[in-house]
Amino acid sequence: MAVLECKNLTKQYGHVTALEDVSFSIEPGRIVGLLGPNGSGKTTLIKLANGLLTPTSGELTICNAAPGKETHAIVSYLPERTSIPLWMTATQLLDFYQDFYKDFRRDAAEEMLAHLNIPAKQRIKQMSKGTREKVQLIVTMSRAAQLYLLDEPIGGVDPATRDYILSTIIGNYNPEAAVVISTHLISDVEKVLDEVIFINQGHVVLQSSVDEIREEKGMSVDALFREVFKC
């Protein structure tokens, strides 16, 4: 059973079409890069999967269910912008997640906070932008979800921290789950991806395993991306 499946999915904002006739499926145990230029429809697709938007036509399902209360319990979502309450301390945020999500693994979250030297008693509003992003990613990845939707998870952090964050993503997700990483920092995330979906102007232009790209085209995902989307 596919973790995430789209069938002829279209989303319009008035007269503007953000996604058109998109069809693909993502199987369990896969880390998938959702890759495309700015304005290609990546964030719209992730918001549809999280139930924040509704399709204009077509359908999107998560473990055979339409996005809603049932899927919120199995989807862990990292939005592009920081959305955690700034007045909380890191400890209070963990308390909140523990109360709200049955699948929250507090021990994993505490271990990651300690590894990144993030003070548990410090208020989030006192943290730097990059540290806030780390905290938000930590709580997102500390759930034992079926689907992780990560919108630009490494956009605002330094290169050294990116490596830790990517290893965190690999080491902390349920092997029966799927991870979707939307990003434009392809060379940074390529090493953790199993497959990629290229999206451009609301259309899927490629879905392929990373191994196939390397074997059949003889190039990296980053090089293929540059070729497909060159200006």
Rank of each mutant, 00 (worst) to 15 (best):
G58I: 01
G51E: 12
L78Y: 09
Y77H: 12
R123E: 02
H72K: 13
G39S: 08
I124E: 05
G39R: 10
A120Q: 06
C63I: 07
E80H: 15
E80Q: 15
P119D: 01
I62F: 00
T54V: 13
A145H: 03
A65K: 15
L147Q: 00
G39P: 04
A109R: 14
T71H: 06
E70D: 03
Q126I: 05
L94W: 05
L150E: 09
N117H: 15
E110T: 03
L147S: 01
T44F: 11
I124C: 03
A66D: 05
G130V: 08
Q122M: 13
D103V: 04
G36L: 12
K125F: 14
T61W: 09
C63N: 11
P85W: 06
E80P: 07
C63R: 13
E110V: 07
W87K: 06
T82N: 15
A73Y: 03
P79K: 10
H72Y: 10
C63W: 13
L53M: 01
A90R: 14
L60P: 04
A145K: 07
S76H: 02
I118D: 10
F104I: 08
V75W: 03
C63L: 12
I46P: 04
T43K: 05
K129H: 13
N38S: 13
K121A: 01
P37I: 04
S40W: 04
M88V: 03
A114C: 09
L150Y: 07
P37Y: 03
Y77V: 01
E111N: 10
T54P: 10
Y77E: 00
T89N: 11
L150P: 08
P55V: 08
D103E: 10
P85H: 01
A65D: 13
N38A: 08
L116M: 14
L35R: 02
I124Y: 02
G41N: 01
Q146S: 10
V135K: 10
A108N: 07
W87A: 11
I46E: 00
D99C: 06
T91S: 15
M141I: 05
L34I: 02
I118A: 02
C63V: 04
A114K: 15
I62S: 00
A109W: 09
L94C: 11
P85D: 02
Q122T: 08
Y148N: 02
T44R: 10
L93V: 14
K134H: 05
F100E: 07
L35I: 14
T140P: 11
T54H: 12
P153M: 07
H115M: 09
L86E: 12
S57C: 13
D99G: 09
R132G: 10
L149M: 00
D99L: 11
A120D: 03
V75H: 05
Q126F: 14
K47I: 04
P37L: 06
E133A: 11
A144N: 14
A73I: 00
A73M: 01
A73H: 10
Y77C: 00
K102T: 10
A108T: 13
P55N: 04
T44A: 12
D107K: 11
P119L: 03
I46S: 01
K129S: 09
K125P: 00
T82P: 08
L78R: 07
D151S: 05
Y101P: 14
V75K: 04
D103Y: 12
G58Y: 04
L147G: 00
L45M: 14
S57F: 11
P85F: 12
R123D: 01
L94A: 06
